[in-house]
Design a protein around this nucleic acid. Sequence first.
DNA 1: GTCTATAGGGGGATAGAC
DNA 2: GTCTATCCCCCTATAGAC
Lengths: 190, 190
Amino acid sequence: MVRIENSKRTILNLAEALLQDKGFNGFSYANIASELGVKNAAIHYHYPSKEDLGIAVMQRYRERFKLWINNARVKDLTPEAKLDWFLNIYTSMRADQGKICLVGSMEAEFNSIPEGLQNEVQNLHKELLVWLQITLADGREARVFVFKGEPADKAALLLSTLQGALQMARALGPRKFHAVIEQIKLDLLK
Amino acid sequence: MVRIENSKRTILNLAEALLQDKGFNGFSYANIASELGVKNAAIHYHYPSKEDLGIAVMQRYRERFKLWINNARVKDLTPEAKLDWFLNIYTSMRADQGKICLVGSMEAEFNSIPEGLQNEVQNLHKELLVWLQITLADGREARVFVFKGEPADKAALLLSTLQGALQMARALGPRKFHAVIEQIKLDLLK
DNA sequence: GTCTATAGGGGGATAGAC
DNA sequence: GTCTATCCCCCTATAGAC
């Protein structure tokens, strides 16, 4: 049971949590309906198909990320503080709650999810990479990050690491995830 | 349609491929049956429940990995060659075919798969980590690998990276995966 | 916006014939 | 070992009343 001020938004919240928890093929309208305290059909009123619902979750997330990184609270940070902010999202909002990131969840099931969703996953993944790439490049220029090669490749590596480490945390526990975070810093910081 | 010399083995092969392709919740007995050219019930004869089938795939994989690493062809390699061997598994057998690793596939769906399967995933993940940790420690002692911190943590980071990068390859293409492999080497080799 | 009712399909699984 | 037949459940989705 969940407090309802705005059903449509609450449905998105529940769907997002379920996606991070059980994956697209692992959750159902019934899961959302029972938690929300309504019947199945009420969900279909707001989001006719499961694909619609999944896409809405992804679009909201992309919008949220865009707002975050363009907000002065993040935009004006040093590269090192930006990295900390980013790593902290993965630690406190995901690993410590047994959640994984939406991108990883849906890429693991990529070949068994609707095409429209696949596109959203691609878009979000690219957007995360762009931001991280720029942050890494800025940090190297400021001599706080140290790495060989291209910022784009280092960004792809880092994001892959985080994505995989969240999944590892599920089977082996959050302490292993924290160890990976520390190792990332050892590898990157001067 | 698939050639049948030994149904039970062929079923395992198909199930393994499907797990890497669509995930546990994304494939069905019907997928296997139709590819094998038999009816649904024939699969249940060999593996009564889907959980049984999943566990059998995992146990065979664990056994295979154990044989590999204890075989002289791998056991006697230098640490650097061992790493190349390992990375090549991920590149040629997975990324270039749109497959992901069993561990990543099932950890992404961890909260929506049977408990017996969860245990197998944990075991395999630990076994991979142990081998990689030893290889990294040996390589650092031989001064071919360079990294700060504990081999156990570096192993967890590396495996996470590979797991995540395979998933990324699905959405963004295998070239991105190859770039991550190169970055791993840049980060690790002297 | 939410309900009841229901359609229609696919899933996992079992019984018993061959 | 594989078949046909069947069960039962859950799923996504829709129609129409309230």
